[in-house]
Simulated assay, not measured.
Amino acid sequence: MKKSLSRITAVALFSLFAATAAQAAVETYRAHGTVQQVDAANGKVVLAQDAVTELGWPVRTMTYKVHGDKTLQGISAGQTVDVTFTTTSPYQAAIQFITPVSQ
């Protein structure tokens, strides 16, 4: 029984460490731009954005997936925004936060 408890504890600690390491590996980036289109039903937004130099992305218009049901609340086409996003490739990025910018 004592060995089983020790093994369970060891597995739990290892799992916690692995989960923490995986979360730490996710990098976020920022972009500034103008909302071109909002597709709240499908959780997407099209943004004409400035360059993202950390990723080597030029100035461009890109469709982002949006995390969270309420992330797009109050966001509409024509607004200037700052976004924080994660990415797995130059063509797939997911916005975590979107903030309107006063003009």
Rank of each mutant, 00 (worst) to 15 (best):
Ser4Gln: 12
Leu72Pro: 11
Phe14His: 07
Ser4Phe: 09
Thr84Gly: 00
Leu55His: 06
Ala18Val: 14
Val52Cys: 11
Asn42Gln: 13
Lys44Gln: 14
Asn42Met: 06
Ala93Gly: 13
Gly68Phe: 08
Ala19Thr: 14
Val66Trp: 01
His67Val: 12
Ile95Met: 13
His67Glu: 13
Gln37Ile: 00
Thr20Arg: 07
Phe17Ile: 14
Ile98Met: 03
Thr28Glu: 07
Gly74Glu: 06
Thr87Val: 13
Ala51Val: 05
Ala31Pro: 05
Gln79Leu: 03
Ile95Ala: 12
Gln79Ala: 06
Thr9Asn: 10
Val26Gly: 09
Pro58Tyr: 00
Thr86Asp: 05
Gly68Asp: 05
Thr88Cys: 08
Phe97Tyr: 12
Val101Met: 04
Gly43Leu: 09
Gly33Ile: 09
Thr61Val: 10
Pro58Glu: 12
Gln79Asp: 06
Val38Asn: 04
Val45Phe: 01
Leu47Glu: 09
Gly43Arg: 10
Gln73Gly: 13
His32Lys: 15
Thr61Asn: 04
Ile75Asp: 10
Lys44Asn: 13
Val66Gly: 10
Leu16Glu: 03
Ser102Cys: 01
Val35Ser: 04
Ser76Thr: 14
Val35Ala: 06
Gly56Asn: 08
Leu47Asp: 05
Gly43Ala: 10
Val45His: 02
Leu5Lys: 12
Ala18Lys: 04
Lys65Ser: 08
Ser6Phe: 06
Gln23His: 12
Val45Leu: 09
Gln73Met: 02
Ser89Trp: 03
His67Ser: 15
Val11Asn: 06
Ala22His: 09
Leu55Phe: 08
Ala51Leu: 07
Thr53Met: 11
Thr71Glu: 07
Arg60Leu: 12
Arg60Tyr: 00
Lys44Met: 15
Ala94Met: 10
Leu55Met: 13
Asp69His: 03
Thr84Met: 04
Lys70Ser: 15
Glu54Phe: 01
Asp50Met: 11
Ala31Lys: 02
Phe17Glu: 03
Thr80His: 01
Val11Ile: 14
Phe97His: 15
Arg7Gln: 10
Lys44Val: 11
Tyr29Arg: 12
Val52Gln: 06
Val26Gln: 07
Lys2Thr: 12
Leu13Trp: 00
Ala24Gln: 11
Gln96Ala: 14
Ala51Ser: 13
Val11Trp: 01
Tyr64Phe: 15
Thr28Asp: 07
Phe17Asn: 01
Gln103Cys: 04
Trp57Arg: 04
His67Arg: 15
Gly74Trp: 02
His67Pro: 00
Ile98Pro: 05
Gln37Val: 03
Leu13Asn: 08
Leu47Ile: 15
Glu27Arg: 09
Arg60Asn: 10
Pro90Asp: 05
Gln73Asp: 15
Asp39Ile: 01
Ala31Asn: 03
Ser89Asp: 08
Val101Thr: 04
Arg30Val: 11
Lys65Leu: 09
Leu55Gln: 09
Gly74Ser: 06
Arg60Phe: 00
Thr88Leu: 07
Phe17Gly: 08
Phe17Lys: 05
Tyr64Met: 05
Thr80Asp: 07
Glu54Asn: 06
Lys44Arg: 15
Ile75Thr: 11
Leu55Glu: 06
Thr86Cys: 04
Ala22Lys: 09
Gln73Leu: 07
Gly33Asn: 06
Ala40Glu: 03
Val11Gly: 00
Val46Ile: 10
Arg60His: 04
Thr28Cys: 02
